Simulated assay, not measured.
Amino acid sequence: MNTKNSPLVENKEGRKTALITGATSGIGRATAHEFAKQGINLILCGRRQERLDAIQHDLEKQVDVHTLNFDVRDKKATFEAIESLPENFKTIDILINNAGNAHGLDPIQTGDTDDWDAMMDINVKGLLYVSRAIIPQMTERQTGQIINIGSSAGKEVYPKGNVYCASKHAVLAITEGMRIDLNPFGIKVGAINPGLVETEFSQVRFKGDTLADNVYKGFKALQPEDIADIIYFAISRPAHVNIADMLVLPTAQASSTIIKKTN
């Protein structure tokens, strides 16, 4: 684990601070840009330091930015990274649990157990580690908001999606459990569940195979900026309003297996 401090910039009075996991690409990166546009200070987390550096360089003229380079699967590194935050970044108002992935698309009988471990470790355990490191400060202040990025796969199971779907169903169960447990502290908890979003997701899932090239052909998929806009909508509601659970699909997608494509 290593961390990189942003240049010392005086915190703007009243600005909130958001921590975003999986901030180096896709929805996480788009959310960082949206939050910066809205004047929210940022703690950006990811495994690729060079990408964190590039995003920091892009955004630090708008807001204060700090980067944390660690893997959410590593419990020790996760807690150490968050503990290492400098004083002006220690108060985290908004947590966006975005880090997640899919590995493989195999029937259960031929599934790769390493793929299963990766999905459960990142999508479920990683989310839990980051949340456990941050929630106590929110309960102490009795304020804060957590958005967990789920998936339409958390709403239905599709062929060969077995373990990935299970991990995203778990995200929704954890979200509901968080909302119940944190209700006495006034902490908002919700899940945003996208359908097909055009990101690096399919390249990772198919491990660089050309199958990934066909996933988004023939229809207009959601873009990372679409989800970032919705995440900002959720965190900008009045104090008495909580977006608890939202399913977002491209117009062409009716379900995980029904997509209207042009020839």
Rank of each mutant, 00 (worst) to 15 (best):
Phe185Val: 11
Gln145His: 08
Gly154Tyr: 05
Pro194His: 00
Gln137His: 12
Ser131Glu: 11
Ser131Cys: 07
Ala133Tyr: 01
Glu198Gly: 11
Ser167Gln: 08
Val163His: 00
Gln142Arg: 09
Leu196Thr: 14
Thr175Lys: 10
Gln142Ile: 04
Glu156Thr: 08
Gly144Asn: 07
Asp181Arg: 04
Ala153Phe: 11
Gly190Ser: 06
Gly154Ser: 10
Val197Ser: 01
Phe185Glu: 13
Tyr164Gly: 00
Gly144Arg: 02
Glu140Ala: 15
Ile174Val: 06
Gly195Ser: 03
Gln145Leu: 10
Ala153Gly: 15
Asp181Glu: 15
Ala170Arg: 02
Lys160Pro: 10
Val189Asn: 08
Cys165Gln: 03
Asn162Met: 12
Arg141Pro: 10
Ala170Val: 03
Asp181Trp: 04
Ala170Glu: 10
Val197His: 01
Val197Glu: 02
Val171Trp: 00
Asn193Ser: 11
Arg141Gly: 12
Ile147Gly: 06
Val163Thr: 01
Ile180Asp: 14
Gln137Thr: 14
Leu182Ile: 01
Tyr158Leu: 15
Pro136Ile: 09
Ala173Met: 06
Arg141Tyr: 08
Asn148Ser: 10
Ser151Ile: 02
Ser167Ala: 10
Ile135Cys: 05
Pro184Ala: 09
Ile192His: 04
Asn193Trp: 03
Lys168Met: 02
Arg141Met: 10
Val197Pro: 01
Glu140Val: 11
Phe185Leu: 09
Leu196Asp: 14
Ser152Asn: 12
Ala173His: 09
Gly150Asn: 08
Tyr164Arg: 00
Gly177Met: 05
Ala170Gly: 09
Thr139Ser: 08
